[in-house]
Simulated assay, not measured.
Amino acid sequence: MTSVLRFAMTNAWTYRRADRDDIVELASWRGAGSLGLRPHFHDEHQLVLVLSGSRSFRIDGETITVPAGHAALIPAGMLHAPMPTPDEETVCLNAYVPASRACSSLRVVSFRARWQRVDEISPERILEIAGDILSRAPSPSTGRTGRSKLGAALTESLAPIGAVAASLGRSREGFSRMVRRELGVAPHAFRLLARLNLARQLQRAGEPIAAVAADAGFSDQSHLTRLFRRTFGTTPGVYWRD
Rank of each mutant, 00 (worst) to 15 (best):
Q203S: 09
Q46C: 11
G233F: 02
L158P: 13
S56T: 01
Q201T: 12
L47R: 11
H45Q: 01
E128T: 04
V212L: 04
S100F: 07
V238W: 13
F7C: 03
A189K: 13
L5M: 03
G36E: 06
G36R: 02
G169I: 07
A194Y: 00
G233K: 03
A199C: 00
G131W: 01
H42V: 06
L158G: 15
A12V: 01
P39I: 10
D215F: 15
S176L: 07
G162S: 15
G146N: 15
G143W: 09
G184E: 01
P82W: 00
R200L: 14
A113W: 11
I129F: 04
C103Y: 13
G174V: 01
E120G: 05
L26F: 00
S222H: 12
G151L: 12
Y96Q: 08
R172K: 14
Q46D: 12
R112T: 00
R17S: 15
A163K: 14
V212N: 03
I129C: 02
Y96R: 05
A81Q: 12
L127R: 03
R136W: 14
A210F: 11
G77S: 07
I133K: 06
L224I: 09
L106T: 09
P86M: 03
T90V: 11
S34N: 03
T235K: 06
T85P: 06
A199Q: 02
S171A: 00
T234H: 07
A72T: 04
S100N: 15
R204S: 09
